[in-house]
Design a protein around this nucleic acid. Structure first.
Lengths: 235, 235
DNA sequence: CAAGGAAAAAATATCGATATTTTTTAAAAC
DNA sequence: GTTTTAAAAAATATCGATATTTTTTCCTTG
């Protein structure tokens, strides 16, 4: 028996990568990635049969993963008419940004009030890791892009993880994924005109200096710039 | 064949009540009701096999309904260890209330700014329906309670439905269900010491008078009172 | 030639069976 | 008397087959 298992394992290279304990999680992550990256276009139909063949996953498992994505508002399910990728719109992007600013500043303010030494260390470390990948970014571009997204996400999470409100963090997370999706649609124009690295540095400095007002102002500007960059590109 | 179908249909009286187009939705509604009412206790394990027998629904369907409830944070799913009812705590109740106040006032302010005649009419109508069921409440109590919950929910929704932010309304809805659950756990003490009807009336009057500041202050007090009533009862 | 409607095709929703994993139970060893 | 290990039981996760519903196709009818 172990032979055939080994053979199968070889042909399907670790489906369950990135610590996906369950197949549903694997499907969820993969689908989410495809939606955020735009490989699955906004508003397009998600046909179970089709995805089933493509991802080599049973229909029930797929449906469950899709349902998980409905919770993230990346997928919508219409009655008896299956699933489709959530639509995007300029209006929605503005709404997302507005809410994000609210959640992010709330979380940052409280983190600055409550954060301890370990929290500070986490921020510095995440900033360092982000900086490292940014160095490589100029040369290799495409391949590093995904890794940059991850580390950017980690950095911002490190900033606010000392916030005690489960709900703020929960909503913030959902909104972050939403904005990530919009960001991908305007990836080209994002860099160049803007020194994201310097912005991050300023935010970190203000945060470590425990200057809540300044840190919040900077992070709001950070998000506003992202919005401006995208405005006009989406519908 | 039609005979057996008819027989089955008779024994299962309309499972799909309250406009549940799909079985998943039916299971979802039923589970949610049982969780909010406390029939399914906080933190208790939700065994698929058990529920399957009890609700007469296939396992995949049940899992999907459960996943839907994870999105509402009424159920938590732990890796390869199934589902369980989300725990409750005083800390969480405070967090929920804080966020609710934020979402509710944001939504109310914008509704007051944007609401039209139809919005006003909807509020008056919902208030009327709520008042009617409150009259009956004093006598029959238990049976009317559920209907009161529905109409209370409708009234509060009517107040803020003119808000244009999809996300505020989305988060507000999730939080409302959370608080509904906490409220059920302290149902007895709720009425009596408090004139909820008068509070609703005052909120409605301020809203229709387009006095955003007053309406928001009143609705925050409304929610704070609910919190005070519950504090000390949960864990 | 447009509108409507029946038949066919495609897709979704649902189910129960099987494979995996976790938990419990019991026995053995230290 | 604990702790370990092994076996059994229970529960979850996954799958593909079937039943329902929706969509498309194509023929009829006005």
């Amino acid at each position: 028996m172990s032979d055939s298992v080994a053979a199968v394992a070889a042909s399907k290279p670790e489906r369950g990568g990135r610590g996906a304990k369950t197949l549903i999680e694997y499907a969820y992550q993969r689908l989410r990635k495809d939606i955020i990256s735009g490989a699955l276009a906004p508003d397009s139909k998600l046909r179970i049969e089709h995805l089933r063949a493509q991802y080599e996953i049973g229909s029930s498992t797929l449906r469950e993963a899709l349902t998980l994505l409905v919770a993230d508002a990346l997928v919508v399910s219409e009655g008896q008419r299956g699933f489709r990728v959530a639509p995007i719109s300029l209006e929605d992007l503005k709404d997302v940004t507005r809410m994000r600013k609210m959640m992010e500043t709330l979380a940052l303010r409280e983190s600055i009030e409550r954060g301890d030494d370990q929290w500070e260390a986490g921020i510095v470390a995440a900033f360092h890791r982000l900086s490292r990948v940014e160095e490589r970014l100029e040369a290799e571009a495409e391949q590093v892009a995904e890794s940059w997204e991850d580390r950017n996400s980690d950095f911002h999470k490190a900033l606010i993880c000392a916030c005690s409100s489960r709900w703020i963090l929960h909503f913030r997370e959902i909104l972050y994924h939403q904005s990530e999706r919009y960001r991908r649609f305007s990836l080209v124009s994002q860099r160049g005109e803007r020194d994201v690295h310097a912005e991050h540095k300023a935010i970190m400095d203000a945060t470590l200096a425990r200057d809540g007002d300044l840190a919040c102002r900077l992070i709001e500007e950070h998000m506003d710039k992202t919005l401006s960059n995208m405005t006009g590109m989406v519908s």
